[in-house]
Design a protein around this nucleic acid. Sequence first.
DNA 1: CTGTTAGCGCCTTCAT
DNA 2: ATGAAGGCGCTAACAG
Lengths: 334, 334
Amino acid sequence: MATASRALNGGDRVVTDELRTRVLQAARQLRYVPNAHAQALANRTRATVGLIMHDVSDPYFAAITRGAMEVASAHGALVMLGSTFRSPHREIEYVSTFRAQRAQAILVVGSGFDDAEYLEAMRAELGIHQDAGGRYAFVSHHDLPGDAVLPDNAVGGAAVARALLELGHRRFAVASGPSSLTTVEHRVGGFVDAVEEAGLPRSAVRVVEREFSEDGGYDAARDLVREGLSATALFCASDVMALGALAALREEGVSVPGDLSLMGFDDIPVMRHLAPPTSTVSLDLAGMGRAAMRLVLDVPQDGVVEESGAGGPRRLRFPAEVVLRESTTAPTRR
Amino acid sequence: MATASRALNGGDRVVTDELRTRVLQAARQLRYVPNAHAQALANRTRATVGLIMHDVSDPYFAAITRGAMEVASAHGALVMLGSTFRSPHREIEYVSTFRAQRAQAILVVGSGFDDAEYLEAMRAELGIHQDAGGRYAFVSHHDLPGDAVLPDNAVGGAAVARALLELGHRRFAVASGPSSLTTVEHRVGGFVDAVEEAGLPRSAVRVVEREFSEDGGYDAARDLVREGLSATALFCASDVMALGALAALREEGVSVPGDLSLMGFDDIPVMRHLAPPTSTVSLDLAGMGRAAMRLVLDVPQDGVVEESGAGGPRRLRFPAEVVLRESTTAPTRR
DNA sequence: CTGTTAGCGCCTTCAT
DNA sequence: ATGAAGGCGCTAACAG
């Protein structure tokens, strides 16, 4: 048994060539694959990483996942998937499940929740995971200690405001998600701050808070229109919300950008194909996924700049850049 | 130890209340989670399913995955993800990896490859998996024995042809993927057959074969235009290809549907938002994912009709229905 | 009802 | 270079 084990694993010169080939051949004939559980038990770990996120079918998460999968498979790491559908409870549950699996690493993708109970539970779960030798990292802010890949959400939000101001807009609407999501908070916060910095009153921005989803974007835009829209530009906290908003605007007969300029955030692949091609803030989503996976797999990054206090958590910042397309123009309405 | 195990797992009345609470409390205090590998080893199985597909960031697979995840998490099954990026080799490798994990079930999503070596290897791997008590199923055709969830690809392709014929089109172009993919073969085959059945010559359809991807769609449309398009309607073998085709047509100055009617296949969520909203063939993608997961988890289906020979493989057929939107009109060019 | 004893399949010392 | 033995953490079968 020991010899077979050595022949199969220890690629080294510890087994006679003849014996090794004999073992290998038998294995092939039997289509033998070692029991990964037994290996994991004996080795006390395994190249496995747990991926926790809202929902893979959301293009934002899909793109990040793709990047993560590329790196994982290049390094022979097995990926386990956990969809939370935005439930903090499920998120914690998945950490615990992956802990039970003795996952080598856990990747928590997407906005954190601003909720004391959740934060405490996550901190505890992740702490134990780490004490047991596991790694973990976040993609997006989490108000929790740990390595992270961070999109420049606030900077992006501010850039949107400045781009719109430069076009001549002075009254804005924002289709926001729940402010308890850190991502939303940063994007909308950055936007509002930039507007105020430009000397406009707070009242220049009308913020509507709905679900952080396509339906939420739809609801927000429809309600905004029905309450008698005075804004000349609408900023959506994500492209997925912008998708919904666009549908609502079409139904309500509001022309984009004629009546209203529209901007999203993320630059998911379809934005360029929409009617009209929609302005947004581009983020290297797949790159973020790759960087995060590299972070937890402890392989060197590839061009991404690391910004970390000495010994502190490692943080990889991803720039957010405004991409102007046809959904934004100078305001024409009076 | 045994008592602790019983208290934790066997929800029955086999342990004194007092002892059980004591165990439970200790577990909670220590944030104990049982080692899943040890459990799997002792139990010889675990509720784990391996999901094999091309790429989660492709909206088609993303939607199917979403459905599969819903059912999996409702049944407490852990999902492992394998992205093949269309490599038959990796597909086989993942089956073997999941076999090593002693996955309870393996779900192979997406078109199979028409390749003898691949088919033989898959048959062997899946056979061993099954002999070891594992289940598996396909989503889409695979020319391999086993349970399957099958979209009506050929029927859908034919329906596209008929819809276009009815609008008055007589000369067609098809942006096809590699004909070695069964999905492509069925869709394009159904289309071509229906055109011939309508009494038109084979030459009425110009088929261009490119990658089965957005880039492939782009290349196909661009090349068709540059070679001097005589068709009045373009059928793309998938919506993702249609996305690329639309971009190419825009760049080449071909107006849709003015110069050319366009149809895709799948009805991925964005099609309705495109410029113009694009006609396609709708498939209940998430439903297919759910059905497939139910199939391998052996839980009753929910409204989906099963079509199976007695004792033979179980097959769930999903209807494909044409959805006409603004990318298709009667031909105006001469 | 509780405790004891074998494995589950593999890997890793430790002898040989 | 090979083989034998112990243990990874848990559960199931068997005693008590």
